[in-house]
């Protein structure tokens, strides 16, 4: 690994000043779990690393207009153990518990996870299913973007040079909405998903589908929403067979990659299977 100058900053403003000063030669570090490996492999070789660890304003979980706000530097373990998050949505806790191992969850952060933008990561599908937004800061100001649209490509997001991700905001959950996260991994429990699905569903008094979200991980160059599946179900009185039929549509929405966790063909098929199972479990009164 090439060595670098490490700048420990105490605030987001300080970090943004350093990003402006060193431009392309600067890189942010949160938990460092992915960045260390990428630097080790020579994939990223910054001359200046801006360490966010002591920027306490970027850490923590709080209420935000009926929903919650999870600031960027919050570790996965903190999310998983937060009673605030559990009260807001137990499915979110379950999804974070599925990330790698406790060792990784103690060090890695939600902001680092989203900006790293590996499509196999666990938080994005469930955060997409819950309509998360992210707050991005720069020296000019702040912008809020929906997570749906945040990911551009493999390891690429809309966060530009000179910007940092400050927090993730989740809106209030309408009463009666159930959600689930399924991580399919045929190898070992601590592995990345071969395919994962985050889903949310709310049925009206007459049993029709008032609200539905389906998002997938490991299914395309970025985490994705399965809009065709959602559109096929919205407003319908749902039945199991109808869900199976809608789940077929996901095959055209995914664009998986062949890798050690399965061939593209297999993942496409698993996307259909697990989309169907996730939605059926919600229809059958499962989920949280």
């Amino acid at each position: 690994m090439r060595t670098f100058d490490y700048h420990a900053v105490g605030s987001a403003a300080e970090a943004l000043d350093l990003l402006a000063q060193y431009g392309e030669d600067a890189h942010l570090m949160a938990g460092g779990t992915s960045l260390m490996l990428m630097m080790e492999q020579g994939l990223i070789q910054p001359g200046h690393v801006v360490g966010l660890r002591s920027a306490n304003e970027l850490r923590g979980i709080g209420a935000s207009s009926g929903g919650i706000e999870i600031r960027a530097l919050t570790t996965h373990r903190e999310v998983e153990r937060s009673s605030h998050v559990r009260d807001y949505c137990p499915t979110l806790v379950e999804a974070f518990e599925r990330i790698a191992t406790i060792r990784i969850r103690n060090q890695a952060t939600i902001g680092g996870n989203l900006v790293h933008a590996d499509p196999a990561q666990d938080p994005p599908p469930i955060l997409l299913a819950l309509d998360a937004e992210v707050v991005i800061q720069s020296k000019i100001g702040e912008r809020t973007v929906p997570l749906d649209g945040f990911f551009r490509d493999y390891f690429e997001t809309v966060v530009e040079e000179g910007e940092l991700l400050a927090s993730v905001r989740l809106p209030a959950i309408v009463a009666g909405t159930k959600s689930t996260y399924v991580k399919f991994l045929p190898r070992t429990e601590d592995d990345y998903a071969t395919l994962s699905v985050g889903a949310a569903l709310r049925l009206g008094a007459d049993g029709s589908c008032e609200h539905v979200r389906v998002a997938l991980g490991s299914a395309a160059p970025t985490p994705i929403r399965a809009r065709k599946v959602e559109a096929a179900l919205q407003g319908q009185r749902l039945t199991g067979p109808m869900i199976d039929e809608a789940a077929e549509l996901v095959r055209d929405e995914v664009d998986p990659l062949d890798d050690v966790r399965g061939s593209a063909k297999y993942k496409r098929e698993m996307a259909r299977v697990w989309t169907g199972r996730a939605l059926r479990s919600l229809l059958d009164g499962g989920g949280k």
Partner: peptide
Amino acid sequence: GDMVSACLMPAIF
């Protein structure tokens, strides 16, 4: 008190 991987953690942390 928190368990971490010493191979992933920068010593400066």
